[in-house]
Amino acid sequence: GPREVTMKKGDILTLLNSTNKDWWKVEVNDRQGFVPAAYVKKLDSGTGKELVLALYDYQ
Results as ranks from 00 to 15, higher is better:
34 F>A: 02
32 Q>W: 15
6 T>A: 13
49 K>V: 14
57 D>P: 06
33 G>F: 15
32 Q>P: 09
4 E>S: 14
1 G>T: 12
15 L>N: 00
19 T>A: 12
26 V>E: 00
44 D>N: 13
47 T>K: 10
53 L>N: 02
42 K>Y: 07
19 T>E: 14
15 L>D: 00
24 W>Y: 07
8 K>E: 05
2 P>K: 13
13 L>M: 09
51 L>V: 09
17 N>T: 06
54 A>D: 00
17 N>C: 12
34 F>W: 15
47 T>H: 13
25 K>I: 15
17 N>V: 07
45 S>E: 10
28 V>A: 11
41 K>P: 02
2 P>I: 12
54 A>T: 03
35 V>H: 00
56 Y>V: 12
2 P>A: 11
48 G>P: 08
55 L>T: 04
9 K>A: 12
14 T>M: 09
51 L>F: 11
23 W>P: 00
45 S>G: 12
31 R>M: 15
20 N>E: 06
29 N>C: 07
34 F>H: 05
22 D>K: 12
39 Y>D: 03
53 L>T: 06
16 L>T: 04
39 Y>V: 05
50 E>N: 13
17 N>F: 05
33 G>K: 05
31 R>L: 13
2 P>L: 14
23 W>V: 03
29 N>D: 12
27 E>G: 07
50 E>R: 12
37 A>K: 05
53 L>E: 12
58 Y>E: 00
50 E>I: 14
37 A>M: 04
57 D>R: 03
37 A>T: 05
59 Q>T: 15
46 G>E: 13
18 S>F: 06
21 K>N: 10
20 N>A: 06
31 R>W: 15
22 D>P: 02
54 A>K: 00
26 V>D: 00
20 N>Y: 07
19 T>Y: 08
55 L>G: 01
28 V>D: 05
2 P>G: 14
26 V>F: 02
45 S>V: 11
4 E>T: 15
31 R>S: 12
12 I>Y: 05
27 E>K: 08
43 L>S: 03
43 L>E: 04
58 Y>H: 03
11 D>I: 03
55 L>E: 03
47 T>S: 14
36 P>D: 02
30 D>Y: 07
6 T>F: 15
48 G>M: 10
50 E>P: 12
30 D>R: 07
36 P>F: 04
42 K>A: 06
9 K>E: 06
56 Y>P: 00
7 M>E: 01
5 V>R: 01
27 E>P: 00
24 W>N: 01
19 T>I: 08
3 R>Y: 15
43 L>D: 02
3 R>F: 15
9 K>N: 03
12 I>N: 02
38 A>D: 09
19 T>Q: 11
7 M>V: 06
19 T>C: 11
2 P>Q: 13
23 W>Q: 02
30 D>M: 08
15 L>H: 01
